[in-house]
């Protein structure tokens, strides 16, 4: 800590951090990419700041038999190269710029809860769980409930937990340009060949990333699970269903100066169909400048690789 009575706290442990939070009236600082610019403009004026950069226990990540656990202090940069979750890697890779990816963290993404947050969209698709710690102990909540309730001011997000991938995963986004650009609409698609499920989440249409459940159910029934392939007609229909779901979203985002709600719904369907086409079309090698490219093989362990996608300045 800087000085006695200071308004900036720099704890070394989670226990110390939650103790400061318990007193209330404090804002958390992780990578700083949201909070520090907001302090500059005066948009946010916290009385006290708890800086988490030195809490090393938040920076761990690991894998169990069925789950991955990622500490809240893990940065996007750390996730970009993570082979255990190609979908997370693909998502992290299209967040901001290298400067942002080096600083921004998983916990920061959850704390800020941007309705178009790239990571939140992927975490929504995989039914991730958020691990929270307060002075009275630890609890785990589904990411959807977490986003609905908002972050509690006296609790710290310490980690997220998500299932290990069991099939192709993809994250596609539309922005005003191809690199280092804000997400307008995005889509995360996660295929689980073991449980024979397809999960989809779209952002940019509602107050938080939403799941088009009817479209998911349609795909689940249409996929030939022996090969994990989907017909071209079903791919198109899936996109239409996602657009329909966007049209009846609870808490829809209104038209804004640049983009209408109708466009966003349409774009969500296009991205979803594109993602389904790539993840569920057998052996395909395609390339798309807007985001990561995909290699899906029809073997028992399909692979989605991010590193081939090229972004232009």
């Amino acid at each position: 800590m800087i000085a006695a009575g200071a308004r900036l706290y720099r704890p070394l442990t989670v226990a110390d951090a939650v103790e400061v939070l318990a007193d209330g009236d404090a804002e958390l600082l992780a990578g700083g990419t949201d909070l520090v610019p907001a302090l500059r403009t005066g948009r946010r004026r916290p009385r006290r700041i708890v800086a988490l950069r030195r809490v090393l226990e938040l920076r761990s990540r690991g894998a169990g038999a069925d789950t991955l656990i990622i500490g809240a202090g893990v940065t996007y940069h750390d996730l970009v190269g993570w082979s255990l979750s190609p979908g997370l890697a693909a998502t992290a890779r299209v967040v901001g710029s290298p400067q942002i990816r080096n600083a921004g963290t998983v916990g920061g993404a959850l704390g800020t809860a941007n309705p178009r947050g790239d990571l939140l969209t992927f975490l929504t698709a995989v039914d991730a769980e958020v691990v929270l710690r307060g002075v009275h102990g630890m609890r785990t909540v589904p990411v959807g409930s977490f986003l609905d309730a908002g972050a509690s001011p006296t609790e710290l997000v310490t980690a997220v937990r998500l299932p290990r991938p069991c099939g192709p995963q993809l994250y596609l986004k539309v922005g005003s340009r191809q690199a280092a650009s804000a997400t307008v609409v995005s889509c995360a698609l996660v295929v689980d060949r073991v449980r024979e499920r397809v999960n989809c989440a779209i952002s940019g249409v509602a107050g938080r990333p939403m799941r088009p459940l009817a479209a998911e159910e349609f795909v689940r029934d249409q996929v030939d699970w022996s090969t994990a392939t989907l017909s071209a007609d079903a791919v198109i229909r899936f996109g239409e269903l996602v657009t329909e779901a966007a049209g009846i979203a609870v808490d829809p985002l209104p038209d804004d100066l640049l983009v209408s709600a109708a466009y966003r719904g349409h774009a969500a369907g296009v991205l979803a169909a594109r993602a389904a086409g790539r993840c569920l079309s057998g052996p395909v090698r395609s390339r798309d400048a807007s985001t990561a490219s995909v290699t899906a093989t029809p073997s028992t362990a399909p692979v989605v690789s991010a590193p081939d996608g090229r972004l232009r300045v």
């Binding site: 990419t33 948009r43 004026r45 901001g96 704390g111 309705p115 947050g117 650009s181």
Partner: peptide, 22 residues
């Protein structure tokens, strides 16, 4: 968080203190 996280939505902006620094 990504650069798109402008926070303009107000969602998740818990702990904001709008009173001037005294």
């Amino acid at each position: 968080m990504s650069t798109d996280a402008s926070g303009e939505t107000g969602i998740g902006d818990t702990g904001i203190d709008d009173t001037p620094i005294s």
